[in-house]
Amino acid sequence: KWTITVQGEEAIKWAIKVAEARNLDYTVHIDGDQAHITIE
């Protein structure tokens, strides 16, 4: 299990796209213009 933090709307969209493309189980916690994405 690991967490990445991305900043900015484009980076958030990209990170989610990558997680979905790899069929990963993930949760997103949005904090202002940052998102913390935890991959199970």
Score class of each variant (00 low, 15 high):
Ala15Cys: 13
Gly8Asp: 03
Ile30Trp: 12
Trp2Asn: 03
Trp14Cys: 15
Ile37Ser: 01
Asp33Phe: 07
Val6Asn: 00
Gly32Trp: 08
Lys13Arg: 13
Val28Phe: 04
Lys1Val: 08
Trp2Ile: 11
Ile16Glu: 04
Ile16Ala: 01
Val6Thr: 01
Tyr26Leu: 03
Ile16Lys: 03
Ala21Gln: 10
Thr3His: 09
Glu10Tyr: 08
Asp25Pro: 14
Asp31Asn: 09
Trp14Met: 13
Asp31Gln: 09
Glu10Ser: 08
Asp31Leu: 08
Ala15Val: 14
Ala19Thr: 03
Ala11Ile: 07
Ala11Pro: 02
Glu9Met: 12
Asp33Trp: 08
Asn23Lys: 11
Val28Leu: 12
Ile4Phe: 11
Val6Lys: 00
Tyr26His: 02
Ile39Val: 07
Thr38Ala: 05
Ile12Tyr: 07
Val28Pro: 00
Asp33Gln: 09
Ala35Lys: 04
Thr38Val: 12
Ala15His: 06
Glu10His: 06
Ala11Asn: 13
Leu24Phe: 09
Ala11Tyr: 08
Lys17His: 10
Leu24Cys: 14
Ala15Leu: 13
Glu40Asp: 11
His36Val: 14
Leu24Met: 06
Trp2Pro: 03
Lys1Asp: 06
Glu20Ile: 13
His29Arg: 13
Leu24Ser: 03
Gly32Val: 05
Ile12Asn: 01
Thr3Ser: 06
Ile37Met: 04
Val28Gln: 02
Lys13Pro: 00
Val28His: 01
Tyr26Arg: 00
Glu40Ala: 11
His36Tyr: 14
Val28Trp: 05
Thr3Gly: 04
Lys1Leu: 07
Thr3Asn: 04
Thr5Gln: 05
Trp14Ile: 13
Lys17Gly: 11
Glu10Ala: 11
Tyr26Asn: 00
Glu40Phe: 15
Gln34Glu: 08
Glu9Ser: 12
Ala21Thr: 09
Ala11Thr: 06
Ala11Glu: 07
Trp2Glu: 03
Ile39Gln: 01
Lys13Gly: 03
Thr3Phe: 10
Val18Tyr: 15
Thr5Cys: 13
Glu20Thr: 10
Asp25Lys: 15
Ala21Asp: 09
Glu9Arg: 09
Tyr26Ile: 11
Asp31Ile: 13
Lys17Asn: 09
Lys17Glu: 11
Ile30Met: 12
Asp33Cys: 10
Thr5Trp: 08
Val28Ala: 03
Gly8Trp: 10
Gly32Lys: 05
Leu24Thr: 03
Lys17Ala: 15
Glu20Gly: 05
Ala21Asn: 06
Ile39Ala: 02
His29Trp: 14
Ala15Tyr: 12
Ala11Gln: 09
Thr3Tyr: 11
Lys17Leu: 11
Lys1Ser: 11
Ile12Phe: 08
Ile39Pro: 00
Trp14Lys: 13
Gln7Pro: 02
Ile30Pro: 02
Thr27Phe: 06
